[in-house]
Write a protein that binds this DNA or RNA. Structure first.
Lengths: 208, 208
DNA sequence: CATATTTTGTGAAATATTTCACTAAACAAT
DNA sequence: ATTGTTTAGTGAAATATTTCACAAAATATG
């Protein structure tokens, strides 16, 4: 199985390529990409070789072609539907976040436990959590986003898993437990900050 | 230098330990922690050994002591001040996010380019971006959070770096370039979703 | 057209990370 | 006390990841 870091790099390459394309760049070399993404050129070539992406010796890679190949590997050829559970700060921000559409993900509904937050007329309608299960199965939702407090997160994951969601993005600051029918990616803001502080301190120590 | 994954695991151990503590657990073994965090028991022990954390053979580790040791390593013994640049969806969500306080980080101000968003009276006041530099130096801000669109992100980072910020949490979906006076952690929501989709597809392929 | 240069693709080497497996310490039981 | 059991600590082994270095292909140059 291919490591997560490798897949993350592919995404970064693709991002960088979009920028190069915007600047009118047509042909690119491994070292240009490497610099843009902060890795070595052989890392870039090795990553590509793993997925059978090939360029031309002395000719580099065609930006357009490479983008398509990466899109293909990263699997965004059909639009996927997602729901958010939790209409708090983070949940609401994600409902209005435009970056997901660009990536082929549409957020079609949100769910919360608090009736004051219900709003079936909104752009992204907010329903009661009791509707989650039927909504997911009726609308063939593949992706769930968890934006509830830590205590409720495991329960929400179980609901989603049971309803047939295939992948979950979890914003609750807790390690969730899932069987291997479902993929869970954690985005833990507190952990990221803590991590940042560690490296700030480490870098201060190094300079002494 | 110690790998990022290792530091991330330390944070996860600490999180798990808080939960155990809440349940009244006093003494814990490497395999309990391992299970909670989804790693092997020897990974736990190896991680601890790197940082000179030791327990008792057959007696495991004292939950309270372990939490303190981890807090110490992760460096959260003094409250740090942070500012947010960008008062859009993500920026506003982060201003109201209560999880940071718990981790010893206080968000003291936000900055935006749009005068409609200015609000010096708010709980977290929102100023014009032109005030960023002086605010950071006058208030000895160590942490910056970038929540602006991708095109503006590099510029904001440069401003922060120049003003003396030590670490940055970047939410803009772009690879930023910084010299090594400053630590940058990226949280790229689009990339995480893309990554999730890759693994959903990969897991579907495996099952065929 | 021949030669020089550049850049890919990739095994092999070097590093880094994780797991294994065993020793010894701590505690429990008899 | 002695014996048995559990679990930390840790070198060594196994894996995984990254970098090196060079042959071969593509293009440029004279």
């Amino acid at each position: 199985m291919i490591g997560r870091n490798c897949i993350v790099r592919l995404s970064r390459y693709k991002n960088a390529l979009y920028q190069f394309k915007k600047l009118g760049v047509v042909k690119i070399f491994s070292d240009n990409l490497a610099e843009a993404v902060n890795v070595t050129a052989s890392q870039v070539r090795k990553d590509f070789s793993i997925f059978g992406i090939s360029g031309n010796k002395r000719g580099g890679y065609q930006v357009e072609v490479l983008i398509e190949q990466l899109k293909d590997i990263l699997g965004k050829n059909e639009v996927q539907k997602a729901v958010i559970v939790g209409a708090g700060n983070i949940g609401r921000a994600l409902m209005n976040y435009t970056g997901f559409e660009k990536e082929g993900i549409t957020i079609v509904a949100a769910f919360d436990i608090d009736p004051h937050k219900f709003n079936e007329q909104a752009n992204v309608p907010i329903f009661g959590i009791d509707k989650l299960n039927s909504f997911i199965s009726n609308n063939k939702i593949t992706i769930g986003i968890i934006a509830v407090p830590a205590v409720a997160a495991q329960q929400v994951l179980d609901l989603m898993e049971h309803a047939g969601v295939k992948g979950v993005l979890n914003f609750a600051p807790i390690s969730l437990r899932a069987n291997n029918n479902i993929v869970v990616n954690n985005i833990n803001l507190e952990l990221e900050l803590e991590n940042l502080i560690y490296y700030i301190n480490a870098s201060a120590r190094t300079k002494e």
